[in-house]
């Protein structure tokens, strides 16, 4: 079953094509990484999946339902996104964790907050800490936990480990793989680190200049058959 499928999807801003005729799908329950050089349109593609942007042309289906059938809040809670900068609202870690429920006028019980913090490898003691005082790694973990509060069926991750040291990045990788395996969450993950892509991916999308060049198993990165993919992997691994 497809978690998300694209049929001829393009996205333009002031007549500049950012994404060009993307056709492909993300498989439900799998981890798919999006790789490609900067400016390839990867973040734009994630924002289309979460409804932060709307395609100029083409069809998107989310869990076999047309994109247009979802209200924006429904789409965004079904397809959660952890943004690259892991922005925090003013207030404590608890305020940030509770945000998805606060927006629905619900409250997050403290024990549930503690549970989510533990799930992302953080101590519940940081609940009352100012969210803006967190380290980069802690921010990313809180950001992921906050996205998970909505219990999304699909989780979009935008270079969430790019600003972290290796130890923090490794532990977040493990966390995401656990979430995928234990909770059947579909993960779509932008990474610029090809070794990370090889470690975590079930499937890979290679994007260059707004186009989907190739999709398949991680083998397409290990033994590239497509010339553009080969050039990209040689440059990225050099």
């Amino acid at each position: 079953m497809h978690a998300i499928s694209f049929q001829d999807v393009s996205y333009e801003v002031t007549q500049k094509k950012i994404l060009s005729q993307i056709t492909g799908h993300f498989t439900k329950g799998r981890i798919t990484t999006l790789v490609g050089p900067s400016g390839a349109g990867k973040t734009t593609l994630l924002k289309l999946c979460n409804g932060l942007l709307t395609p100029t042309t083409g069809q998107i289906h989310i869990l076999n339902r047309a994109y247009e059938e979802y209200s924006p809040p429904d789409l965004r809670t079904t397809v959660g996104i952890a943004l690259q900068a892991a922005p925090m609202i003013r207030g404590t870690v608890y305020d940030n964790l509770a945000l998805p429920l606060t927006l629905k006028k619900q409250t997050l019980p403290p024990q549930k907050a503690a549970h989510y913090l533990e799930a992302v490898g953080l101590s519940k003691d940081i609940c009352q800490q100012d969210a803006r005082d967190l380290s980069g790694g802690q921010r990313q973990r809180v950001s992921i936990a906050r996205t998970l509060i909505n219990e999304p069926a699909i989780l979009l991750l935008d270079e969430i480990t790019s600003a972290l040291d290796q130890a923090a990045a490794d532990s977040i990788e493990k966390l995401i793989m656990q979430l995928n395996q234990q909770h059947d969450v579909t993960v779509i993950w932008i990474t610029h680190n090809l070794e990370q892509a090889l470690r975590v991916s079930d499937e890979v999308w290679v994007m260059i200049d707004g186009k989907l060049i190739q999709q398949g198993t991680p083998a397409i990165l290990q033994q590239p058959t497509h010339q553009q993919v080969q050039q990209f992997t040689e440059g990225a691994l050099r």
Partner: peptide
Amino acid sequence: DEIELILSLG
């Protein structure tokens, strides 16, 4: 980024 965050969470 904060505005977009809140929108992204529904």
